[in-house]
Write a protein that binds this DNA or RNA. Structure first.
Lengths: 164, 164
DNA sequence: ATAAGCATTTAGAATGTTCTAAACACACAG
DNA sequence: CTGTGTGTTTAGAACATTCTAAATGCTTAT
């Protein structure tokens, strides 16, 4: 491959994975997707491992993570016994879906945490002295505030899905 | 403090920090903010360290992280030489700002990465054979696609700021 | 001046995560 | 059958992050 193209590719893959890293995504998973996305054709495990300078086992486990995201799919290549993978071409769909579904999932976790918090607060209601009553009231106020934050974030994620 | 209130508080702090962790946020920073937010009054470093079962040095460094976010502020308490900190009460503002500004920052990083990618591609333009030309064209197409994703995400973040 | 009470910094311990190389299991070809 | 080419799993090495306890340094009180 032409040297400049190779440089461009490596630079892109490196940069994009470093950025994704700051959002808690596994750096190498993103590198894998970036490679397949840029190349826009099916690659085998060995080709990916070679292109990224990494072990085959590593590729094996992380490509399946991408499959779970729906970011990548297994391709049948006639005459080869190898597994080939190709990136889902609609990157917008992949990316926005990933964000929106992460938000929705966290939102559910928060909801159930808040429910539990509320239940414990209620169950404490009988046996509180004056000072504790005040604290319990503060907690209850906070609980409602957080619900509103959750709703804002969820609705932004929904909007993102719509305008995508 | 009443046992049930303490349980509610600990459960909340633990749960919320575990959730935030999956977004790449430091778990303990979130615990600190959650504590101050729930209590809704100024606490000293020692009180925080005690409440969270953690060293004072740890609190010292992470509370300043929260200050940088604008999530917490230093409070003067008459007659005490200690530093007290209180949570910014408008959690929605804190939270939405944090998300929106993270998105904006990443967006700039992506923009400059894409610029660089484009420049290298252009500079390669002269000396490409047929096969390489095709690859370069693919790369260029991808570059534009990513720009559109970036714009979608940025505009969702902006919207979130508006509806907050 | 000296001591006491703080917050901060630091060196390194503890913990958590990611990666590799080798072992393994399976399918197919000869 | 046996060997070869695959993908997967695994044990532990390499690396990165987070935390602590102690050292430090600053400020105030006496």
């Amino acid at each position: 491959m032409n040297g400049k193209l190779a440089i461009a590719q490596d630079r892109f893959i490196e940069g994009i994975s470093r950025i994704a890293d700051t959002f808690g995504l596994n750096r190498f998973v993103i590198q894998l997707y970036a490679l397949l996305y840029l190349r826009d054709k099916p690659l085998s495990l060995d080709e990916m491992a070679g292109a990224l300078g990494v072990s085959k086992g590593n590729v094996s486990v992380n490509i399946r993570e991408l499959e779970k995201w729906g970011a990548v799919r297994n391709i049948w290549v006639k005459g080869s016994r190898k597994d080939y993978y190709q990136a889902e071409p609609d990157i917008k769909k992949v990316f926005v879906n990933k964000i929106a579904s992460a938000v929705e999932k966290r939102s559910e976790e928060i909801s159930s945490l808040l429910d539990e918090f509320g239940r414990i607060l209620n169950s404490a209601n009988g046996d509180l002295n004056g000072e504790e009553e005040k604290l319990a009231a503060t907690y209850a106020k906070k609980l409602n505030e957080i619900k509103r934050v959750r709703d804002t974030v969820v609705s932004a994620a929904g909007m993102m899905r719509k305008i995508m």
